[in-house]
């Protein structure tokens, strides 16, 4: 008996929320929005996503599905010359510094990054 790691129970009972965290919803919606804007065909997207999901680090319980989703989107944007990984990494670090520099309770803005020049 090699039962898989997926848990088929709970069907029809209480489903978990569609997205576990807000960033997953944002990453999901960006793909839908960019497709609707005509940046790529849905077949292009499915190809990018399936390539990423075929990597061995995609977990058997699909727990890192939206990490892979975001990877696939970044790859597609890089291929289209719209973004590149270095720029994304630099900006992500800036967002993290901005968050740290933002007083609790205030909105986090990229302008709050102390290293911004």
């Amino acid at each position: 008996m090699s039962l898989p790691d997926f848990d088929p129970r709970g069907q029809g009972a209480i489903d978990p929320p569609t997205f576990q965290e807000p960033w997953q919803a944002q990453a999901f919606a960006m793909v839908v929005a960019l497709h609707e804007r005509g940046l790529f065909s849905w077949a292009d997207w499915a190809e990018a996503l399936s390539t990423r999901l075929a990597q061995p680090d995609f977990r058997h319980d699909a727990g890192n599905y939206y990490e892979c989703w975001l990877d696939a989107l970044e790859t597609l944007m890089t291929r289209k010359g719209i973004a590149d990984p270095d720029h994304i990494g630099t900006l992500a670090a800036a967002w993290q510094r901005a968050a740290k520099a933002t007083p609790h309770g205030k909105p986090i803005l990229l302008e709050n990054d102390p290293d911004r020049n």
Partner: peptide, 14 residues
Amino acid sequence: DPMTARVRALETIL
């Protein structure tokens, strides 16, 4: 968290 920061970064660019 790193994932939120990455999504914000990409959203900023787009």
